[in-house]
Structures are given as structure tokens and as C-alpha cells.
Simulated scan of single mutants.
Amino acid sequence: MDRDAVMEEFRAAGALREGHFVLSSGLHSGVFLQKNLVFMHADRAERLCRAMAEKITALVGQVDVVVSPAVGGIIPGYETARWLKVPAMYVEREAGQFKFRRGFHLEPGVRVAMVEDIVTTGLSSRECIAAIRAAGGDVVVAACVVDRSGGEAEVGAPLVSLASLKVPAYPADQLPPELAALPVEEPGSRRLTA
């Protein structure tokens, strides 16, 4: 599956949005990929994650488990694991840190594919990988559906993506005037409060 086919999945699902968005990273962007509108359709998730499983296998061979960061990575992680025929787990934030909960644990040295939805700065991926390594896992690859950094994000493991885009994102104090003039939406989940 090439970049155009991936972006067509987002367009067809109404998930490629334009406006003024605060991303989970805290950066502001004129483009937001509402991946949940894609993943709510099992057929779209299947096509994307089957292609991601094929890329993972081509790069590193067989893995033992897929681990994803909650919340956004759970669906693509599960569906990719299904195609890899391995278990899927996820880490959740506890006191601000990703941790394995709900009985999930890793055997020492297990080969892990960390699967994420969208990478912008790579922060969630780095935090997830740190939790995997702290639990004894060997992260042999990181994978995402879309890399918004255009290949510039450093996640701490070899990163493969189905689509790589260079989408401008700005700190709040460095917004271009045309972006600053638009009403702000904050569709991400990182800063949700109880």
C-alpha cells in the first residue's frame, strides 16, 4: 500500500481535516488526521494494518508481540498483531508514565513491534518504547500508519510507516497569521482530564 492509497483511506472516511488544531504533542497544525474515523471501519483498518504487518515482516522478520500506546494505538496495534499472528498488548498512562497494566507483561528478550497510529514528534512512541524496554522487551521495530514528521521524528527504534508526510506544526507562540486567525480545535486525547 503506497502513500496515496493510505491518504485515500483517510479522505474517503472524512478523516483528513483542515482548520486550526492543537495536536496531542501540543503543537498547532492546519491539518488533522482523525484516525478514529478510519479505524471505526473494520475494512479500512484491515487494509491498513495488513499492509503494516507486511512492512514489519519485510523489515525485521517475525516478531513475538505487538505493543501499542493507549488510546490511539490500541486498534491499529490489535489489527496489525492479528495479521502478524501474535498477541497484542498496550501500555497506559499511570501517574503520567506508560506502564503495563491489566495483567499484561513481557517475557525477557521477547521481540516486540511497537505499533502506533500517527507519529508527529515521536514522544508517545519514545515513551511506549521506554516502557517496553523497562519491562524486558526488545523493540525491533516501531511502526505507524502515518508519519507526520516526514521521517524526521526520532522514536528510539527503526521506524516504518505506511505514509510519510511533512505536515507543518508550530509551537503556540510561533503560529503563522493565517493559522492564528482560525478557531482552535483540540481533538487529541493526551490532555484529556477526568
Rank of each mutant, 00 (worst) to 15 (best):
V31Q: 06
V31N: 02
F32V: 05
F32S: 00
L33K: 02
L33I: 14
Q34F: 10
Q34T: 04
Q34D: 15
K35Y: 11
L37Y: 09
V38G: 02
V38Q: 05
F39K: 07
H41N: 14
A42S: 13
D43T: 13
R44A: 11
R47K: 14
R50T: 12
M52A: 13
M52S: 08
A53R: 03
A53G: 09
A53T: 01
E54R: 11
E54N: 04
K55V: 01
I56P: 12
V60H: 05
G61T: 02
G61D: 04
G61V: 03
Q62L: 12
Q62Y: 03
V63N: 07
V65E: 06
V67P: 11
V67A: 01
S68R: 06
A70D: 01
A70W: 00
V71S: 15
G72L: 02
G72T: 05
G73V: 02
I74C: 08
I74T: 09
I74E: 08
I75A: 15
G77F: 11
E79H: 15
T80F: 06
R82K: 13
R82W: 07
R82S: 09
L84S: 03
K85C: 08
K85P: 00
K85T: 02
V86N: 08
P87Q: 10
A88C: 10
M89Q: 13
M89T: 11
M89H: 08
Y90M: 14
Y90A: 15
Y90D: 13
V91T: 11
E92L: 02
E92K: 03
R93G: 12
R93Y: 08
E94Y: 14
A95S: 13
Q97I: 13
Q97N: 15
Q97V: 13
F98H: 07
K99E: 15
R101Y: 03
R101F: 04
R101E: 09
R102T: 02
R102F: 06
R102M: 11
R102C: 14
H105F: 14
L106H: 04
L106A: 07
L106M: 06
L106S: 07
E107P: 03
E107Q: 14
G109P: 09
G109V: 00
G109S: 03
R111T: 00
R111C: 06
V112I: 05
V112R: 01
A113C: 06
M114K: 07
E116L: 06
E116N: 11
E116A: 08
E116Q: 08
D117R: 00
V119N: 08
T120W: 00
T121S: 00
T121Y: 00
G122H: 01
R126S: 04
R126F: 01
R126M: 09
E127T: 08
C128Y: 06
I129V: 05
A130V: 04
R133F: 02
R133K: 14
A135R: 04
G136C: 01
